[in-house]
Structure formats: C-alpha cells, structure tokens
Computed example of a mutant assay.
Amino acid sequence: MKLYIYDHCPFCVRARMIFGLKKIAVEEIVLLDSDIDTPTRMIGRKMLPILQKEDGNYLPESMDIVHYIDKLNEPRYAGGEVSAEIDAWFKAVSKTVSKLVTPRFVETDFPEVSTAEAKKAYLTRVAKSYGDLTVLYKETHTLLIELEPQMQLLDIWLENRNDNFDLNDFIIFPILRSLSIVDELSFSTNVNNYMVRVAKATGVNLLFEQAK
C-alpha cells in the first residue's frame, strides 16, 4: 500500500498514526504542494491524504483511511465515537491552531515545500485564508492567550483517562503535533508526556526540533 501525504498536514498524521499503531507496512509518499496533477488523477481533486490500497484503488479522507486500516486486523483502535468533550475541544481550538502554525510551516524544511514552486503554491493557497503571513506571525502572543484555557481543559481531560488508544487520539495528537512547531508554546508535563507516548507508539515524529 502507498500513502500520499504532506508531512505538515494534521489530517495526514491521522492516517500515519493508524499504520504505526497497527504495525502495518505502508510506503509514504510526500507530494509537493505544487503538484495538482497527481491527486487529481487519483480522486479528481487536490486533497491529501490518499491511500492507494493493495488492489490499486484510491481511498481519500483521513478518517476513512483510519477505519479501513483499523478493520484489517486486531487490536482495534478506532471504534466507538469521539467524546463530546474532545469534539468540543477540537472545534474550539482549530482556528487558533491554524493561525499559529500556518506561517511557521512554510519556514521549515518540510519536503512538500522544498522547491521554490512548491513554496509559492503553499503561500498562494494559504494567503487566500490568512492574508499576509508575516502579519499573522506577529499575532502569536494573542493567539497563545486564546489557546491557553483550551490547553488547560485538555490537560485535565488527559489526566482522567487511561493509556489505551482510541478514536479520541486521532483528533488530539495531530493538533498537538502541529503545535509542537510553535517555539513560544509551553506544554504541561501531562500533555508533553502524552505527545511523546503517542509519537513513540505511532512512529509519527513531533516538530520540536523545527520549532519557530
């Protein structure tokens, strides 16, 4: 099987997580952000992740990939429903997190923006939503203040759960992995330990070394 991804993409992280947890081999292929033709040929539009299954068919949508791989063998990790608390948390933090990480992603050595053309494609795309990224970068302090109460809620939620993986982790960890690129953000011991544990179990690296 082949998994087409962007390294920075939290939705792609979801798909990568299930392969790591299940210990199922997959070839990860990182596309350039400027590559429109490849995903369009596969599924009719530019969107990742995309899984090329063993039969050659293509499966998009991160959680569809998670559920497909989860059903291949035991143990299962993605059954049930996302908790109401985590669903509300995700909705509350998503916009703030995007504003924090988007201007930082383009400053890294992610392979999807490794060429001038790919970096230009990324900047053009995100500018439609966020405008000038240098201006957005200057909002870091305000955005961190917005994020703080939600990180406190997550800290409490994690403290009251066991270490078994479930569907909630596919919502929580990709967000935290993205946030690990924000140099000015300090994580609580509880949250940091969670991040390290999931990264080790899934084989998906954190971004502390690239933090800006």
Rank of each mutant, 00 (worst) to 15 (best):
C12Q: 03
I172N: 02
I156N: 14
D163V: 03
L153M: 11
I172E: 06
V113L: 00
M42Y: 03
V204D: 04
W89K: 05
L48T: 09
V30P: 13
D87S: 15
K22L: 12
F165M: 15
A211K: 11
V135D: 06
S180C: 00
E117P: 02
D166A: 03
I29L: 02
L32G: 10
T134I: 15
I156R: 12
L123F: 09
R16V: 05
L3C: 13
R177D: 00
L144K: 06
R177I: 04
Y122F: 04
D35P: 05
Q152V: 14
C9Y: 12
G44E: 08
I175E: 07
L167D: 10
T134N: 15
L167M: 08
E61I: 12
G20P: 10
Y68G: 04
K99I: 00
D183G: 15
L123S: 11
L158R: 11
S62N: 02
L185W: 04
K95Q: 13
F19K: 14
E209M: 10
Y122S: 00
F90E: 15
I145K: 10
V135L: 13
P75F: 00
V82W: 00
E74V: 09
D35L: 01
Y122A: 06
T40M: 09
D109M: 07
V66C: 09
L51G: 04
C9V: 07
N192I: 10
T140Q: 03
I24M: 13
M1Y: 07
K23W: 07
L147M: 07
S83E: 04
L48A: 00
A15F: 03
M47Y: 15
R161P: 07
E209Q: 14
S98P: 04
K128Q: 13
L21V: 03
I69L: 01
L167A: 06
P149Y: 11
R45L: 10
K138Y: 09
V198T: 08
H8F: 06
M63Q: 05
K212D: 06
A127I: 14
L144E: 00
L154G: 13
Y194F: 12
P75L: 10
I50A: 02
P49C: 06
Y137A: 15
L51I: 03
L100Q: 03
G203W: 05
L3G: 11
K95A: 12
V198W: 05
R76M: 04
L207W: 10
R76T: 12
Q210A: 08
A116F: 01
L133P: 08
P75V: 08
Q152Y: 13
E139W: 06
T40D: 11
F19P: 06
I18E: 09
T189S: 11
L59C: 03
T102D: 15
Q210S: 09
M1E: 07
I36M: 13
I175F: 10
N192Y: 15
L207A: 11
A118E: 10
S186N: 14
Y58G: 02
S94I: 04
P39F: 01
F11M: 01
P149Q: 09
V101C: 06
A127E: 08
P111V: 06
G56K: 02
K71S: 15
S62C: 05
N193I: 12
K119F: 00
P10I: 07
W157Y: 12
F170W: 04
F19W: 12
M195R: 05
D64F: 00
E85R: 01
S98A: 14
A15R: 01
D55G: 07
M151P: 05
L179S: 05
N168T: 04
N162Y: 09
T96H: 01
Q150Y: 01
L176G: 10
C9T: 03
L147C: 00
